[in-house]
Simulated scan of single mutants.
Amino acid sequence: MYVLVTYDVETMTSDGQRRLRQVARQCLNYGQRVQNSVFECSVSPAQFTELRLKLLDIIDHKKDSIRFYFLGNNYSKRVEYIGVVTSYNVEDELII
């Protein structure tokens, strides 16, 4: 499944800045950053559940928020790009 993860973490304190880094790090483990607080993730249902639980453990539920947008398997027909595209297609082969 293809999931768009967006978040808003309060960063006025050092704890908030730490939470922000931890959320970004976890999202990077499952997908690619496409904007500052937006990640595209191609994950299985089990991987999504794992990511969701990790993020729930990190955030402060009274100050921070996370949104998940489920684009499904036909996501390429639901995503439109305008301007510079700096991300890669997660379905293509990746050569390192």
Rank of each mutant, 00 (worst) to 15 (best):
D8P: 14
K54I: 06
K77R: 14
D15M: 09
E10D: 11
V43P: 01
N74P: 00
T6V: 09
I59R: 06
Q47W: 01
Y69P: 00
S44I: 06
M1R: 05
K62S: 11
I66A: 02
M12Q: 11
E50L: 12
R18E: 08
N36A: 09
V90A: 14
K62A: 11
T86F: 11
R18W: 04
Q35A: 04
S65E: 11
I82G: 01
L71C: 06
Y75L: 03
R33I: 01
N73R: 10
K63D: 11
V79M: 09
M1C: 03
R52Y: 12
N29D: 14
L28K: 15
D8V: 12
L71N: 04
Q17M: 15
G72L: 04
D57I: 01
V90F: 08
T86P: 05
N29Q: 12
N73H: 08
Y2M: 12
K62N: 07
L56R: 14
R67F: 05
V34Y: 02
E93W: 08
Y88W: 10
L53E: 14
G72M: 01
N36Q: 15
I82R: 05
D64F: 05
L4S: 06
Q35S: 06
L20K: 01
I95N: 04
I66E: 00
R25V: 01
N73Q: 12
S42R: 15
R19A: 06
Q32M: 13
R25F: 07
L51G: 03
L28T: 09
V9M: 03
R33W: 02
I66L: 10
Y2A: 00
R78S: 11
G31F: 04
L4W: 03
S87A: 13
L71Y: 07
A24R: 07
F48C: 04
N73G: 03
V3Q: 04
S42D: 13
K63T: 08
S87H: 15
V79Q: 07
G31Y: 02
F68R: 05
G16M: 02
N74R: 07
N36W: 15
R67N: 08
N29E: 13
C27W: 05
L51P: 00
E80L: 11
Y7L: 00
V79G: 01
Q47M: 10
R25I: 00
V5S: 03
Y30L: 08
I66H: 01
Q26K: 15
D64E: 05
I96T: 06
K77E: 11
E91L: 13
L51A: 04
D8N: 11
V84D: 12
K62T: 10
K63H: 12
C41I: 10
S76A: 13
A24T: 10
G16Q: 00
Q32F: 04
T86L: 15
E91I: 05
T49K: 15
D60I: 07
L20H: 05
G72K: 08
S76D: 08
V5Q: 02
N29V: 01
Q32G: 05
A24L: 08
L55I: 08
R33L: 04
K63M: 14
T49P: 03
E93P: 06
D60L: 03
Y69G: 01
L55R: 05
S65Y: 03
T86H: 14
K62P: 00
R52L: 02
D64V: 02
E80D: 07
F68E: 08
Y81R: 09
Y69E: 02
L71S: 03
Q26A: 10
V5A: 07
A24G: 11
T86W: 13
S87R: 13
I95L: 15
